[in-house]
Design a binder for these strands. Sequence first.
DNA 1: CGATTTGCCTAAAGGTATTAGGCAAATGCA
DNA 2: TGCATTTGCCTAATACCTTTAGGCAAATCG
Lengths: 189, 189
Amino acid sequence: MVRAGLTTERLARAGAELADEVGFEQVTVSALARRFDVKVASLYSHLKNSQDLKTRIALLSLEELADRGAAALAGRAGKDALTALANVYRDYAREHPGRYAAAQLRLDPQTAAASAGGRHAHMTRAILRGYDLTEPDQTHAVRMLGSVFHGYVSLELAGGFSHSEPDSQETWSRIMDALDALLRNWPAP
Amino acid sequence: MVRAGLTTERLARAGAELADEVGFEQVTVSALARRFDVKVASLYSHLKNSQDLKTRIALLSLEELADRGAAALAGRAGKDALTALANVYRDYAREHPGRYAAAQLRLDPQTAAASAGGRHAHMTRAILRGYDLTEPDQTHAVRMLGSVFHGYVSLELAGGFSHSEPDSQETWSRIMDALDALLRNWPAP
DNA sequence: CGATTTGCCTAAAGGTATTAGGCAAATGCA
DNA sequence: TGCATTTGCCTAATACCTTTAGGCAAATCG
């Protein structure tokens, strides 16, 4: 019998594709086995368990997202950088909803520390170099930007803004304007 | 044999409690049956299926959250109202993480229309009466506030801000200051 | 009090997760 | 190149969750 050539890496990638097609929730070891035309038990030589698969998809997505962010930020500053990074998240979520959902998976502290999560915080902080904020305010602003990006993207993905005026793109631009104005004029406590 | 007195209502309530205890993802018809010390099949007289149970928990949570919001907004305006509503979301998510997760469940349009979702948008819009925004900007602001509330709360729940300085409460207050300042000074396009 | 409705049960089929143990293909070494 | 070892995928089996069908007894109604 011919071997399928499974590897942990290939399984994680295929799992990410599957997530985009059917939703991250629906990613299952069984479905993945079907996709490789292989028996379910065979995957357990490459994956510890179902959670392991999900974690690997999450890590892969975080990495991919961080790579896109880094590319988008290169050579940009100020509002230009702000918008570029924000669009990376939004576009990624639209192109790869399953992967985006995976990136939201709650990782245990160990895994989280080794993930690309740190790069994300770092990129947001880099944007703030174009604005004049004191140290603690930078952290507050990083958290706020993360909240807006993630919050908007997930509400949009959940269909929250469809079928209503004005269209989502318009709101998104105006939010960029608003965040830029806010960062240029960050209020004292 | 003595009857357990199951009703759809009681099952949804118990499901919500279960969600808070073990996480919304882990809410299962079987677990619920165990909780009532009843055979699994018995629940199917009261629930269409597993999805139906989840939907009912979501609706119940949305309703509860809207009730709390309405109570918090009564008699308040401006920044006071803004903070009060924001705290309702944050506190609810901390007290009832499972229900909060349930409230994020993607509902089909029919169900969503009949849910308390509309009340939520309505409450956010009510806050904006304390600020001076034109009509389309009100919608942009409603969406932005929703994003920040939801985004912050879910990142916080996912452990994003723990184990790092400054503490989450401090950031939360500063975000309230920032949103208030932003709404008082909403930028033109 | 008898008839009907209703509520929970048993039974059964199908799907996912996971572990144990086996055989054959690939690989490494002489 | 031939043999030994490793590795990869398989079969088998257990356990849990979901869902449907059909039955009996408790509650309710006339």
